[in-house]
Amino acid sequence: MTFSGSTRGNTEASPKTVTPVDNWIPPACWYEPMTAEEFAASMEKAYDSVVNDPRQPGYAKAGQGQYREIYKDGKYKNYNLDEKNRGSWWVAAQDHSRLNESGAWACDELPFWVERGGTPLMKNTATPRILAELAYNRIQLPDTVVSLAPAHATKVNLPTWVWLDTAKFKEVSVTATLNAGGINIQAITTARPISLKLEPGTLDAKTFPPSGECVEDADGSIGERYSRGNANDTPPCGIEYFRSSIDGNFRLRAVLTWKITWKGTGDAGGNLPNGTFGKDQDIAVEEIQAINR
């Protein structure tokens, strides 16, 4: 299994991955195919590494030997090498960045043989949909730092305009490819920002719109860039503070919702659960000073 595009990689966790809504969790394990030759080589390597290691206890060596015997000269014969053109072995694989999760150990079936053209019936068998879900978990997002006007410090009772830089906040995608054991499938998972939730960091503020949820415009933008001609207008996406942050900056939290779709081999495709990703940023609010004469 390989991943390309805006990806965090195969083995590294990242704080910039999307968080699925509705408690949905992408799979942490799956089943993928191996040729008879690949499976035989893998089994023999694992067997040799255990039995030839003086640090391994006797029960571990015995257990590895019994496991090998199933496929060498037990239920199967010589790893089905004589049947190599008629099928594939299917084995469990794991997301190595999620080994501390129980889901990583849910694929607990022993390797099994599937005749060519057959369909494995196990849950989490590698299909374009499963590849799309695996790609979902590897999407690397840009930091959710919004643009503000005023940019550095706003004023009490002055609407602050908020928007996203469309050059930075555009759709990103990850492609998952499986080319193994005679199987060649692919899926592309794409994330597109569709709304921005603003949390001012204090109750002494209001948002525009009142819900704090700034939705995507027809042109794909979220919020509107401030210009001089907007001075007397109400921002379509923004914040207004009612007191200063003289005792420290407020922590503005901006949470983006991303719409997730996928396309895969055989014209498969559809939607996956939306995801969110947020970040805090400091915002200073000053009192407007007036001089009386």
Rank of each mutant, 00 (worst) to 15 (best):
E171C: 11
P27Q: 02
E37W: 11
W90E: 05
T166K: 07
N80D: 10
N78A: 14
D165Q: 12
F112W: 13
Q64G: 12
I185L: 14
A268L: 06
K77G: 07
L256E: 03
R228N: 13
K84R: 04
P120S: 04
V18T: 13
V162H: 07
V145T: 14
R251S: 05
G212L: 05
N78S: 11
S88P: 02
F169V: 12
A187Q: 01
G65E: 13
T144Y: 03
Y67P: 07
K61F: 07
N271F: 14
A93C: 02
Q289L: 06
W163F: 01
I185D: 01
N137G: 13
D82L: 09
G269Y: 13
A93E: 04
A176N: 09
K155T: 02
Y76W: 15
I239C: 00
N292L: 00
F250H: 04
E37K: 15
S221P: 01
G65T: 15
G238E: 05
Y76M: 08
A62P: 04
L203C: 08
P20E: 06
W105S: 04
P273W: 03
D95E: 00
V156P: 09
D217R: 05
K84L: 10
E133Q: 15
W163G: 06
A284V: 12
D82H: 12
A205Q: 07
A60M: 15
Y71W: 03
R293Q: 06
K123R: 12
E287I: 10
K16Q: 11
R98A: 09
A135W: 07
Y79R: 01
P193R: 02
T19I: 11
M1G: 03
I70W: 09
I139L: 14
L110P: 01
L99Y: 02
I139W: 06
L131I: 03
G238H: 04
G103A: 06
A180I: 09
K279G: 07
D95K: 05
G266K: 12
F250V: 13
G229K: 11
D143L: 00
M34T: 08
T257S: 13
T160A: 12
G238A: 10
S88Q: 13
K75E: 15
S102Q: 11
I222F: 04
P142S: 11
V21S: 11
D22C: 02
G270Q: 11
D282F: 06
K61L: 09
R225S: 13
S97F: 13
D247I: 08
I139R: 07
K72M: 08
A167S: 15
R86N: 15
I139Q: 09
G65C: 10
G238V: 02
T119F: 00
E32S: 14
T11F: 01
A135E: 05
Q281M: 15
R293L: 09
P111L: 08
I70M: 15
M122I: 10
Y67A: 14
Q56M: 15
T17L: 14
I194V: 15
Q140E: 14
A92E: 05
D73T: 14
N10D: 05
A135Q: 08
Y76T: 06
